[in-house]
Amino acid sequence: MDDLQLIRQLGQALTQAVEAQDWPRLQQADRAIARLLHAMAASPLTQEKRQALQALQQHHRQMYRVCETRRTELEEKMRQHQSQRDGRQAYALFSQEEEL
């Protein structure tokens, strides 16, 4: 597989992993991108490869924003759960005191 195909394939892998919320697969794709960039660093880039890498970079940024949004949503849910848990514990404690 040539570099252009790999670049495009990795972009698709990012999208599929984020859409499936498959975070381990997303990490694998991210590591594969890092390896590819490292391997390509020593060789000159054609205009076509440069454009493909720029598109991949933009795509990576978009996927990063999606992940950040998801992370923020999960943090909020965790805060709400913690807040509700504290309330449930207080209510349970209050109910136990009334029973005594």
Rank of each mutant, 00 (worst) to 15 (best):
P24K: 06
T69N: 15
S83V: 05
Q47S: 12
A17N: 01
E75S: 06
Q9M: 06
S43F: 03
L56I: 05
Q21G: 07
E97R: 15
Q27T: 04
H60S: 10
R50S: 12
A32I: 01
A92G: 06
A90T: 00
H81R: 11
Q57I: 09
E76Y: 14
P24S: 08
S43M: 07
R35S: 14
L10R: 10
E19D: 15
E76K: 14
Q51P: 01
A90S: 03
T72F: 11
A29W: 07
H59S: 04
R61S: 10
E19H: 13
D22I: 00
L53D: 01
L74G: 00
Q16M: 06
W23C: 03
V18D: 06
E19W: 09
A41S: 08
A92D: 08
S95D: 11
R70W: 06
R88M: 13
Q58N: 09
D22V: 03
C67T: 11
A39Q: 15
W23A: 04
R79M: 07
R85S: 13
E19K: 13
L14C: 03
Y64A: 12
S83G: 13
Y64V: 11
E68Y: 06
H59A: 00
Q47L: 15
Q12L: 07
Q62L: 11
A29Y: 06
D22C: 02
I7C: 00
L36R: 03
A42W: 03
R79C: 01
G87K: 12
T72C: 00
Q27M: 08
E97Y: 13
A32N: 08
P24R: 02
H81F: 09
Q82F: 07
E68P: 02
L26D: 00
M78R: 15
T69C: 07
G11A: 01
Q96L: 04
Q54T: 05
R8P: 00
R31W: 10
A42K: 10
Q27Y: 05
R70N: 11
A34M: 12
P44H: 02
F94A: 14
A17S: 07
Q58G: 10
Y91W: 01
S83W: 11
A20Q: 13
I33Y: 07
A17V: 01
L10T: 15
L93V: 09
E76I: 11
D22G: 02
Y64P: 02
M63L: 01
R35E: 13
L56A: 07
E48I: 11
S43A: 13
Y64W: 14
M78L: 14
Q9V: 02
R65E: 13
A55R: 14
A90N: 01
D30E: 11
Q21W: 09
R71V: 08
L53Y: 08
M40K: 12
R8C: 01
H59N: 02
W23D: 00
E68G: 07
